[in-house]
Amino acid sequence: MDVPVSGASVAGPVLAYWLARHGFRVTVVERAVSPRKTGGHSVDLFRPAVEIS
């Protein structure tokens, strides 16, 4: 089965990896023409990246 994944930030490639590991044919599409130098969201897998008060 072919599966399109929209977005190549963090979740898109992770989802694509696991889908491919389970036998799906995955295509990741991204609107940006190149990786961003600034902007986006901070990602920290071990603790909050931004304190919320």
Score class of each variant (00 low, 15 high):
residue 33 V to D: 13
residue 44 D to R: 14
residue 25 R to G: 01
residue 30 E to W: 00
residue 32 A to T: 07
residue 43 V to R: 10
residue 36 R to G: 03
residue 49 A to T: 12
residue 14 V to G: 01
residue 11 A to H: 06
residue 31 R to P: 01
residue 49 A to R: 12
residue 50 V to W: 13
residue 3 V to S: 03
residue 40 G to R: 08
residue 44 D to Y: 14
residue 15 L to I: 13
residue 25 R to F: 00
residue 6 S to W: 04
residue 16 A to C: 03
residue 40 G to F: 01
residue 36 R to N: 06
residue 21 R to L: 13
residue 25 R to V: 09
residue 26 V to M: 05
residue 45 L to A: 13
residue 48 P to G: 02
residue 48 P to V: 03
residue 21 R to A: 14
residue 29 V to H: 11
residue 37 K to T: 13
residue 10 V to A: 11
residue 20 A to E: 15
residue 12 G to P: 00
residue 42 S to V: 03
residue 3 V to H: 04
residue 43 V to M: 05
residue 50 V to S: 12
residue 21 R to P: 11
residue 9 S to Q: 10
residue 17 Y to S: 02
residue 12 G to S: 08
residue 51 E to D: 15
residue 31 R to C: 01
residue 44 D to A: 15
residue 51 E to C: 13
residue 19 L to M: 00
residue 35 P to Y: 06
residue 23 G to M: 05
residue 9 S to K: 04
residue 16 A to E: 09
residue 39 G to P: 02
residue 11 A to V: 15
residue 38 T to F: 02
residue 8 A to H: 12
residue 27 T to Q: 02
residue 50 V to E: 15
residue 39 G to S: 08
residue 19 L to N: 05
residue 1 M to A: 07
residue 24 F to I: 00
residue 23 G to A: 11
residue 48 P to F: 05
residue 17 Y to D: 11
residue 53 S to H: 10
